[in-house]
Write a protein that binds this DNA or RNA. Structure first.
Lengths: 227, 227, 227, 227
DNA sequence: AATGAATGAGCCTTCATTCAT
DNA sequence: CATGAATGAAGGCTCATTCAT
C-alpha cells in the first residue's frame, strides 16, 4: 500500500538495504555519542534515522548489538583509510607522527565515534570479548607495527617491550582524547599531535639518534643537537 | 538480639555510625566494581552489607550519590597515604617510580575501587563536573608536582609542557590498569611499574643525564651508559 | 492469534484507538471511584482494562494525568448532553428542576465518576489550578445561567447574589451526593430532586409568585396556596 | 541522662502527658491542614512538635489514628463552645444566623482544622464509619435542632424534611468554606454569613411570616412588608 | 521489508512503623 | 517515657523488544 516496488528498485535492493543500515549506524553514532549507551534509546535513534523503532531490529539483533556494530563497521573503513595515508612515509617516527595526527584529527571530526569507542566500548566489562572490542583494539595494531619497524630499522631501542611502548602511545592519545570529549571540545585536538610525538620519540629512540634523525622530525626545532 | 553490646562498643558509638557508612561504601565498591553502576542494584549492595535497602538512604541521597561518594571518601585517605609513602624519597624520578608502583599496587589490591574510578566515573559525561570526578583527578596532581620538581632540579627538560607530560604518565598508567581490569586480572599489575617508569624517564630526562643519574634509577640495569 | 480482524474492525481502525483510550478511562473511573486515587494502582486499572501496565502510559502521561483526564474527557460529553436535555424547557425553575434531577440521576448511574469529581478532584489542593478542576466546575456554569435567566424573567429575586445562589444549589446537591457516595448507596438519589428543588425555589423566588407559578412546579402538591 | 525528673514533675506527669499530646495534635492540625494527609509525614509532624518520630506512637496508634483524633478531640471543645455562644439567643432564625457566623468565623481562624475535616475526613470513604467522622458530623446536629425548634415555634414550614433542610444549610456552608480553603484565602469568610442566612430563611420560613418576623432578622432591610 | 502499538520485567525510592537503648 | 536508627513493603514508571498487519 505504501510503495509499489518495481524492477529497478528490486535490483537496487541489496545496496538500498545497506544504505538504510548505514543510516541507522549513522544515527546510532550520533545518539550514542551524545547521550551514551544507557541514556540513548532505540526510539531516539529510530526517530533520528527517520524510521520506525522495529526497523532497527531488522538490521541489528538488539541495542547492544547496534552499539557494537559501530566500531566493527567503521573500522572496516578506517584501517584502509589510515593505511592509505601511511603510504610513502619512511621511518617509524615519521609514521608514528602521522598516525597520531591522523587519529586525533579523525576524532576531532567524528567525536560521536570517538565517544562510543572510548567512553562506551573500551570501559565496559561485558564488551571485552566481543568482536567490537577487538576491532577497536586491532586499530592500534598499527602502532605496534610501527614500533617493531623502528626496532628493526634501529631507531627504536630494542630492549623496549613493544606492548608497553604501545600502551604508552595509546594511553597518552586516549587520555588526551577522553579529556577533550568530556570537556567542551572547544579547543583543537590536533595541537597535541606534535608535542606528544616528540615526547614519545624521546622515550623510544636509541641513544645514538640524539642530534641526528630527530632534527628532521621536530617541526618546531625544539631539539637540542649535542653541539 | 543480634549482638550483645559491650563497653568498648559503647565507647565507639561515635565511630560506629561512620563504620556503618564505611560498610556500605565497602559493599558499594565491591558491587559497583564488579557489575558496574547500571547493573548494580541497591538491593544487592544492601544485601552485601548485611543491611536493609532503606538504610542506604540514611547515609546517601541516592544510588548516584553513593557511587560518587566512593572516590570522594577514599581519596581522603589515599592522598595522605601516598604522601606518607613519598616522604624521604629524593629526586623527581625516584618519586615518579614510587608513585607508579604505589598506584599500580593499590589498584591491584583494590580492583573494585579502580573499576569505579576508571570505568564509571572518569568516562562518564554526567560526572565531569562532580566533586567525585575532581577528587579522582586531583589525585594526579601529585604527578604534576613531581614533574615540576624535576624541571626545577634540572633532571626533566624545561621545554616540556608539564600537562602533556602528566597526560603521558597518567594515560599510560590508566591504560595499563584498564586493560588489567577488563581482563581476568590473573597477571600482576606491579610488574609494569619499573619498565613503564624507565620509558617515561627516557622521555622526560634532560640529555645531559645520560649515563649518570639514570644509572641509579633502573633496577634492571637496562640503561646504556655512553661508555 | 488473539482476534481475527474483519472488515468492520478495519473500518473502525481510527475509532479503535480512541476506544482503547476510552477503555482505560472507563477502568480508571471504576477503580479510582472505588478505591480512591491513592489506593488505586496502575496495575489494577490495567488489569481491569485487560491491558498491560505500560499501555496506560501510551495514552496518559502518568497516574495523576489519568485521574485528571477523567473529568476533562467526560465533561466534553456531559455538557452537550445536559444542554440537549434542557431544550424545550421554559422558565428558570423548570430548568433548575430538570438540571438537579439530571445531575442526581447521572451520578446515581455513574457513581465512579461522581466519586472522582467530588471526592478526589474537588477537594484536592493540588488540583485547583488544573484543567480538570475547571472542567468539573464549569459544569455548574449551567446553574449560574439558570439563575440569571430567572432574574431576567422576574421569577428570581434580583437582589440575590447569583454566585451565592449557585453555592446554595451546588453545595446542597453535592452534599447530598457525597453522603450517598460514602454510604451504601442503596437508597435512590433522585428522590431528593423535587424536594430540594422546592426548597431552592422558595429561597430564590420573588414574593409575587406565591401561589401562582409554583403550583405548577411541584409534582407532589406540597405547596400551600394562600387559602 | 537528658533531664532528671523531680517530685513536682512527677506530680505533673498526668497533665504534662496530655500537654504533649496536645502539642502533637496541634502540629498534626498544622501539617495535615497544610499538606493533606498523604503528603504529610510523621517525621514532619514530629519535627514541628519538637519531638522524636517514635514519640507520636506513644500517644497515637498510627498516622491515621492521629488524623482521626483531630476532630474527635477538637469537637469535644467545640460543641460546648458553640453552645455557650448560643445561650440567650431566641428564635430559630436568630440561632441559625449565629451558628453560621460562628462556624465561618471559626474556620477562618482555624483553616488547618477546617481543611482536615472538610478535605480529608468528610470525603474519605474509609473514614465514614469512624468516630472521627461522626464527631465531625455530630457538630451539625446543632443545625438539626435549630430547624426542629423553628418548626415547633412555627417559623419554619412543618412540611419541610428536616434532614433535607440541614443538607441545604450544611452543603452551602461547606461549599463556601471548601472554595475558600482551596483558594488563596485572602478574602473573608464571614462576609457570607448574613446573605447566606437570608437565603436559607427565605427557603425555610412559613409564608405567614412575610413582613413580620423577618423584618427583625435582615440587617439590610431587604424584606417586603405586606402593606 | 517496515512498522508502531503493546507490553512485562525490573528497580529505585519513600515512609510508616518498630525496637533496642 | 523518649528516641532515632533501621527497615520492609510496595508501586510508579521506563524502555527494549515483539508481533500482527
Amino acid at each position: 500500500m505504501k510503495k509499489k516496488p518495481n524492477l529497478i528498485q528490486n535490483l537496487n535492493n541489496i545496496t538500498r538495504e545497506s544504505e538504510k543500515k548505514k543510516r541507522i549506524l549513522s544515527s546510532a553514532i550520533k545518539v550514542f555519542g551524545e547521550k551514551g549507551f544507557q541514556n540513548a534509546t532505540i526510539a531516539g535513534i529510530a526517530k533520528d534515522a527517520g524510521i520506525g523503532d522495529a526497523t532497527i531490529y531488522e538490521y541489528f539483533k538488539n541495542k547492544e548489538d547496534l552499539l557494537l556494530a559501530v566500531p566493527v563497521e567503521i573500522t572496516k573503513e578506517l584501517i584502509p583509510n589510515i593505511n592509505d595515508h601511511m603510504m610513502g612515509i619512511k621511518g617509524a617516527f615519521n609514521k608514528l607522527r602521522k598516525f597520531i595526527w591522523w587519529w586525533l584529527n579523525f576524532v576531532e571530526k567524528n567525536p560521536g565515534y570517538g565517544s562510543i569507542v572510548l567512553l562506551e566500548i573500551k570501559t565496559n566489562r561485558t564488551y571485552v570479548s566481543t568482536e567490537a572490542y577487538q576491532a577497536a583494539r586491532n586499530f592500534y595494531q598499527i602502532v605496534l607495527d610501527i614500533i617493531k619497524e623502528g626496532q628493526e630499522e634501529g631507531t627504536i631501542k630494542k630492549e623496549i617491550d613493544v606492548y608497553l611502548a604501545r600502551s604508552l602511545c595509546v594511553g597518552a592519545i586516549e587520555h588526551i582524547i577522553i579529556r577533550w570529549l568530556l570537556k567542551d571540545r572547544r579547543y583543537s585536538l590536533i595541537q597535541y599531535a606534535d608535542p606528544l610525538t616528540d615526547l614519545l620519540i624521546d622515550s623510544f629512540k636509541t641513544l645514538e639518534l640524539e642530534g641526528s634523525e630527530r632534527m628532521s622530525l621536530t617541526s618546531k626545532g625544539k631539539c637540542n643537537p649535542k653541539e
